[in-house]
């Protein structure tokens, strides 16, 4: 079964700045797919469309075989999607790191005890346990990135859309992320400028260039 299917997907920003045209993408459930492309090629825009945070100009998006026609369709699917934004500062929200990591879990009515356990587990994986009581806005860029990533990974969703997760991280942190993502059976769609990271995690790779997406 395919987790993500797009057909003839087109998107233009207001002012008719066309980002891509007739884009077809198919990602199977459990597949770990990478998207590469130069700055401004539309990787982040594609991810926002897949999460229903932007509406396409034309074309279809199907998630787990269901056509996403309205924003309500996407809303129902969002519990199954973990989304890492490119800029961690957009994502950090709570007064302490541990609260921020637990935020999505508590929104989804996970008990506080279970949430606490999961927060501790993911903090250990990413080696950020020592930051638990710190204020997220006062951390370094790399630490913020790890906290934002922990806030997504802790959700253990069926689909992880990760927009440049290793941006600003050292190689060891990247390896820890690869090990963790490989350790559970989720579909991953990731963009990165780090070839080593993509080699370590991806089963397939797509290149977004000249408004088109091609497998490479």
């Amino acid at each position: 079964m395919n987790c993500i299917v797009t057909q003839n997907l087109c998107f233009s920003y207001p002012g008719k700045i066309e980002v891509f045209r007739n884009l077809d993408l198919s990602v199977a459930c459990g597949e770990k797919a990478g998207v590469i492309g130069s700055n401004g090629s539309g990787k982040s825009t594609l991810f926002l469309l897949l999460a229903g945070l932007l509406a396409p100009s034309a074309g279809d998006i199907a998630l787990w075989g269901k056509n996403m026609r309205t924003m309500d369709d996407f809303k129902a699917m969002r519990t199954k999607i973990g989304f890492l934004f490119q800029d961690p500062e957009d994502q950090l929200f709570c007064p302490t790191v541990e609260e921020d990591i637990a935020f999505a879990l508590l929104n989804r009515e996970v008990s506080r005890k279970e949430a606490q356990e999961k927060v501790e587990r993911i903090s250990d994986v990413l080696e950020i346990g020592h930051l638990a009581k710190r204020i997220p806005f006062h951390l370094s860029w790399g630490q913020k990135k790890l906290v934002a990533l922990a806030g997504v990974l802790v959700m253990e969703t069926e689909l992880m859309i990760l927009d440049e997760p290793t941006d600003g991280l050292d190689r060891k942190a990247g390896e820890r992320i690869i090990d963790h993502l490989k350790s559970f059976d989720c579909t991953v769609l990731v963009s990165s400028h780090d070839p080593g990271f993509l080699d370590g995690i991806c089963d397939s790779r797509y290149s977004l260039k000249n408004k088109r997406l091609d497998e490479c």
Binding site: L53, Q91, F103, L106, N107
Partner: peptide, 24 residues
Amino acid sequence: ERSERVYNALVMRGFEGRFPMLLH
């Protein structure tokens, strides 16, 4: 633009107008 991104990030983490806390 930033406020739009902050809101999107909240939506993706299941925000529905409640403010749950780990340390209750």
